[in-house]
Design a protein around this nucleic acid. Sequence first.
DNA 1: TCCTAAATAATATATATTCTTATTTACTAG
DNA 2: CTAGTAAATAAGAATATATATTATTTAGGA
Lengths: 152, 152
Amino acid sequence: MDENIRKRLHEMRKNGYKITPQRQEIVNAFLDSSRKLPLSAEEVYMKVKEKYQNISLDTVYRNLAVLQNLKIINRVNFHDVKSRYELNPGGDHQHHMICLTCGSAEPINFCPLKLLSENNFAAEKNFEIREHTFELFGYCSTCRERAIIDNA
Amino acid sequence: MDENIRKRLHEMRKNGYKITPQRQEIVNAFLDSSRKLPLSAEEVYMKVKEKYQNISLDTVYRNLAVLQNLKIINRVNFHDVKSRYELNPGGDHQHHMICLTCGSAEPINFCPLKLLSENNFAAEKNFEIREHTFELFGYCSTCRERAIIDNA
DNA sequence: TCCTAAATAATATATATTCTTATTTACTAG
DNA sequence: CTAGTAAATAAGAATATATATTATTTAGGA
Ligand SMILES: [Mn+2]
Ligand SMILES: [Mn+2]
Ligand SMILES: [Zn+2]
Ligand SMILES: [Zn+2]
């Protein structure tokens, strides 16, 4: 996936974007992160700061917006106040199961839109769908097992 | 629906809640609103202020939280930064089609969870679902028609 | 009517995000 | 390789949303 992402990063130039060190490092923050929880702007900021002490939070936000437009990353909004962002290797989208205990976000290989289109739902309503959200909140298997042990 | 909501409001007393004028007026703000767009805290605040000039925004937030716990209203999170709230006549939950032009939010009579449980999805993953979100964003029929006329 | 837990207003604080402006830099065309 | 320029940046101020603190008031039961 790294290659895919890097390739798309370099294609930015065609659209008049520049590839600055800060911009690259912001993408690296995502590539380096092994976490299942998508990164907040603040977390990206802290990571990039290790290499570029002077980077401003504004630069992070600006780049997150740009990368989002290019579909290199996706913004995901959980119950949390702040937005989170994750790499988007497929250039598509992703739904999640988010654990209310540990905060992990596991992708779901299911999209409810498929079913809606089979049902001809939007056509009937004359509504032109452009985007959608679908997220599950609950308790992941790890946290559930731990809860059982703790209660024993 | 007004009766249903008012009944549930009065049942609050049983749980140790008091029915203050401010609290009633906050519920009225929702009952009076004919808008399809759920109300933001700020909008509720402005509405209640017409009657109680001294109400504090904090009181609005506090009551929105209380009413949410009692399932009298639901919080809905659209793309927007701020949260919005709507009456919950069924005491259940509701998904929406939100228009990116006019902001209207039409309820959808479809919940993707039904299908997931048929598929035994969560059971396989060992994930205990507690909450979920599902919202469609796009263009409503009214705005689509208007766009066609404007272009003619 | 009195008592008390609950609710309130006022104010301060926290947190996330965006805006403004002066300066620097990545890229391109010559 | 250089120079010109649009794009990007850092710094800091500003805005927006939401929450916490505290002293005072009030709803509703005893
Ligand atoms: Mn989907
Ligand atoms: Mn549902
Ligand atoms: Zn977990
Ligand atoms: Zn519309």
